[in-house]
Nucleic acid binder design. Structure first.
Lengths: 136, 136
DNA sequence: TTATATAAGTCTCAAAAAGAGACCAGCACT
DNA sequence: AGTGCTGGTCTCTTTTTGAGACTTATATAA
């Protein structure tokens, strides 16, 4: 469990960064994290980290996102500075989305979490099954 | 930008782990990530990484969560194996929540992301302001 | 010429999720 | 007898999300 050691190191500092103002509610870390912890953000970041994609390509790549949520999530990622949106004057005009430097920087740690998920989805699935079996 | 170098290394492998079955929709990484990318999970993980807390303590610590969502989020974290729930036979009975080994393991990479957020919330805030100023 | 397709969205309506706050049971203290 | 503590659940309202039709302008096919 060296992950325990790592996490213990500066947990408190992070935490204090949140409760510094008095309570945990208006906290810069929360402000940033809540922008990316939603159903579609990490998935789109993952796609765009591979290479730039156009709107329709992303739609086909993630078949279960609605156009509405794709528009909105890309808009939010652009607003927070992670994604760049560029319109090309083709007929009809096409729009390309790509990661900014800030987006690539954020994808570093996000990628670590994605790797953890890949390595440990077996354990999570097992925990779920055990839990569901217990209260049945 | 050495984060760029890091992220470029194994982006594609992760991505393939998702589109392996044919499409990105039923993907183990998504399955795990969606369990923790919601408004309250990372915040509660952050609190419980510091030390175990009881229900009421968590409620006071995160003043803007409703009891309903606190119950539900803790339940989901417990189901996925990140959190342990223990009832103590005090009068009235108290319930303590703590991280499991799996939870501490997951908090490692999550913590990296939280640190990134702490370091870069200035840049994100600046991007937001620029974006909002532009379309006004 | 008329029909169909493609691009990137927007609009409307229905369904699902989240938030607010009352309510509950059991026991201790006053 | 009344109040407070515990950890919840129940109901109602508001917000968010999902499904899918519709748009504007151009190119291509029949």
């Amino acid at each position: 469990m060296d992950s325990k050691v790592v996490s213990l190191k500066s947990k408190l500092e992070i935490y204090k960064a949140c409760s510094g103002g008095g309570n945990i509610a208006d906290c810069p870390v929360r402000d940033v994290i809540q922008g990316i912890s939603n159903k579609w953000s990490s998935l789109l970041m993952m796609a765009l980290a591979e290479k730039p994609y156009r709107f329709g390509e992303l739609r086909r790549l993630v078949p279960d996102i609605s156009q509405r949520m794709l528009t909105q999530t890309l808009h939010d990622l652009q607003r927070d500075g992670y994604v760049h949106r560029e319109v090309f004057p083709t007929k009809p005009p096409s729009v390309e989305y790509s990661l900014t430097d800030l987006g690539r920087s954020m994808f570093g740690p996000l990628h670590q979490l994605l790797q953890w998920a890949e390595l440990n989805h077996g354990a999570v699935r097992a925990a779920r099954n055990a839990f569901d079996a217990a209260d049945a």
